[in-house]
Design a protein around this nucleic acid. Structure first.
Length: 271
DNA sequence: AAATAATCCTGCGGGC
DNA sequence: TGCCCGCAGGATTATT
């Protein structure tokens, strides 16, 4: 389940492998991803040099002079650098081929996407309405507070809405709210500026810690059969319903909020 | 206009 | 043991 930390770990793993190299082929074995892979992509990138690999929200942007290849890993996507001759598995849908090797995209559930954005910047419709990056200067408690004055949805749903802040998925929403000691079911408009400052700090800390944890798995991007980019973290509350809170030993609770499983400690998260 | 529901897909675990 | 069912999940689109 790649959330922002996994995507950032993927970016750090592949950036040094791709930058400066020329694409020699683009093989699509199965174009049926969340958005069908356009047959025009090959013509846009074959023969072109990768200038950089960036990340925006959970999208990877592989930059060329003429534009950027947008890659989203969806629920089960992964990218690995391997020998060009390596046999492709059942869910290895796409190869970005270089002389030195191949960047292979595997995605059993096919929730991911590959799209082409002509030109520089982040003009693609998929990127146009995204909120601030949680690890950037543009994100803080004041921004969250301003963005939640007129909504009655729960603070957890507000936190997961990519127009307010990007990259906070279901796992890290629950984890961040635990760190901030905020009950995920509280209406977003009922939370004050001071507590949003605490939440913004918690989001940053939670994501940064997960990215640090992912650093040790960077080597997995080269060769091997493992799933790169996924790293097991010790969660405070996520998927721990019925188990004792790591802070106060109260039983962790679970509820479905906005169709998503939500976990919290009723003692540590009262407000 | 905002909130909610449906949707895409496969692997896995539980129950029987 | 094997089958069926439900669930998991991000983000867009459709519906209320």
């Amino acid at each position: 389940m790649p959330e922002l930390p996994e995507v950032e770990t993927t970016r750090r793993g592949i950036q040094p492998l791709l930058a400066g190299r020329v694409v020699t082929g683009f093989r699509v074995r199965n174009p049926r991803l969340r958005i069908p892979v356009s047959p025009d992509i090959a013509g846009a990138i074959v023969g072109q040099c990768v200038r950089d690999v960036r990340r925006r929200a959970k999208y990877l942007l592989i930059d060329f002079d003429a534009g950027s290849l947008l890659v989203h890993l969806g629920m089960s996507g992964s990218l690995r650098w391997m020998d060009a001759q390596a046999a492709a598995g059942a869910h290895d849908h796409i190869d970005l081929v270089f002389d030195a090797g191949v960047l292979r995209y595997r995605d059993p559930r096919r929730f991911g996407l590959f799209a082409w954005q002509p030109g520089p910047g982040e003009a693609h419709p998929l990127l146009a309405r995204l909120g601030p990056e949680p690890l950037s200067e543009g994100f803080d408690g004041a921004a969250l507070y301003r963005a939640t004055r007129t909504t009655r949805v729960s603070v957890k749903q507000a936190l997961m809405d990519g127009q307010r802040v990007v990259g906070v998925g279901n796992i890290y929403a629950s984890e961040s709210l635990f760190r901030a000691r905020i009950n995920p079911l509280t209406p977003a408009c009922d939370i004050g500026a001071q507590r949003y400052r605490r939440l913004a700090d918690a989001v940053r800390e939670t994501l940064a810690a997960a990215i640090d944890a992912g650093g040790s798995s960077l080597r997995d991007f080269v060769g091997g059969d493992g799933q790169p980019g996924y790293f097991q973290q010790q969660y405070f509350v996520y998927a721990r319903a019925g188990e004792p809170c790591r802070v106060c030993a109260t039983m962790v609770r679970k509820a479905i909020v906005g169709q998503r499983a939500t976990f919290w400690c009723p003692r540590c998260q009262r407000g």
